Simulated assay, not measured.
Amino acid sequence: MTEQRRLRVLIVDDQTLIRTGFRLILTARGLTVVGEAADGVEALAAVREHRPDVVLLDIRMPNMDGLEAAKRILAAHPQCRVLMLTTFDLDQYVYAALAAGASGFLLKDVTPEHLVAAVRLVSTGDALLAPSITRRLVARYATGQHTPHSTPPVRPAPHRDLAALTPREVEVLTLIGRGLSNAELADTLHLSEATVKTHVARIFSKLALRDRVQAVIVAYETGLVAPGDNDA
C-alpha cells in the first residue's frame, strides 16, 4: 500500500456512539471511513460495496455476531484486515476470533492514538498483539481452559501441512509459537535478521498464513508447541 493512498476503514458496531466516536477520531487523523454497519449482516454488504482495507468489527452484535462476520469477510476478501472490538479484556471469544483470521483486538475504551496506530499496523499485514501475549492467549483457549460459562473456542480445520516446510522452517515456526520476535529468532539461531525474515515469509507463504498470530495458532494446533513451553 502506497503512502499516498489513504487507508479505507469500515466501522461495525451496534452502538451508534461508538461508531460516531471512532469515525471522528479516524477522519481527523487522515484515514478514510468508507462506511458504518450495525451488525454482521450489514457488515458483509458494506465490505462488498466499499472494499475497505481494515474492518473494525464488534464481537457481540445482533443478527450476526462479529465472529461469524469475520470468518465470512476474510473468506471472501482475504486481502482485508479485521480488528475485533471488545468491551472486556481477554474476552472468552479471543481465541475463536484469532482462529477466524482476526489480526488483533482493541478495547472499546482505546485511546485515539492507539486506535489510529492499530489500524495502520494491521493494514501492513502485521498483527496487533505481541507474539508473547498471543502465545499465552492461545495456550489458554487452545487447551480448553475457558470458564464454565464461556463459549467453547472455534478451532481452525487441521489443514496445515508442515511437510511443506524445511527442517529450518519448522524450527523457526516452533520458535515463533514460543513468542520469539525476529530479533530473538536471529540471536537464537545465529542468523541475520534478514535471513530470519526470509524464513518467516516462506513459512507464511507455504502455510497460507496472514500474520504471526496465525503462525502461533498453527504451532499449537500442530503440536510444535505445548502449553507452558518457555512460558513467561
Rank of each mutant, 00 (worst) to 15 (best):
V218G: 03
H146A: 12
V154T: 15
L165W: 01
P112G: 05
P167K: 07
L56K: 01
S103K: 06
D53Q: 06
F105W: 01
D14M: 04
G21A: 03
G125F: 08
D65C: 02
R135Y: 08
D58W: 01
A226S: 12
T124F: 03
E169K: 04
L185Y: 09
S103F: 01
P148T: 05
E49K: 15
A219T: 02
H146K: 11
R120W: 06
R5Y: 07
D14F: 03
Q92G: 13
L10D: 07
D53R: 03
L128V: 06
A76E: 15
A38S: 13
G30C: 02
D91F: 07
G30F: 01
A45P: 02
A139F: 05
R5A: 09
N63H: 15
R168S: 14
P156F: 03
R19G: 05
V34G: 03
S192D: 12
C80G: 00
T198I: 10
R178Q: 14
V196K: 05
N230G: 13
L185K: 07
G40C: 02
L107D: 08
E42N: 07
G104S: 03
S103G: 07
A232L: 13
L185I: 11
A215S: 11
T32P: 04
G125E: 05
R135M: 12
D58N: 08
A208T: 12
Q15R: 11
A215L: 06
A46W: 01
I203G: 01
V82D: 01
L26K: 10
V116H: 05
K108R: 08
D109L: 08
G177F: 09
G35D: 07
P153N: 14
A37Q: 00
P153L: 08
V55A: 06
E3P: 09
R120I: 07
E171P: 07
T198H: 11
V94R: 01
L121G: 01
T188D: 12
G228M: 03
L24C: 10
R5T: 12
R5I: 09
R160M: 11
S150W: 10
V116W: 03
S192M: 04
E36N: 13
S150G: 15
D13R: 05
P112V: 04
D161T: 12
V225C: 02
T147G: 13
L175T: 02
D231K: 09
K197C: 10
A130R: 15
H199Q: 13
T2F: 10
R60Q: 15
N230C: 10
D109W: 04
A75E: 14
T147E: 13
H50T: 15
A100M: 02
P227W: 05
R48H: 15
R160W: 14
Q15H: 15
K197R: 15
A70C: 15
R19N: 08
A70Q: 00
M61D: 04
R23T: 12
V55T: 14
A28V: 04
D126G: 13
A194N: 12
G223M: 05
L224I: 02
L74W: 01
L209R: 00
V138W: 02
R51A: 14
A183K: 11
S132R: 14
E3T: 15
E193P: 13
A70G: 03
T32A: 14
T86W: 00
L115H: 03
G125H: 10
A208F: 12
A183C: 08
M64Q: 14
M84T: 03
N230R: 13
T124K: 13
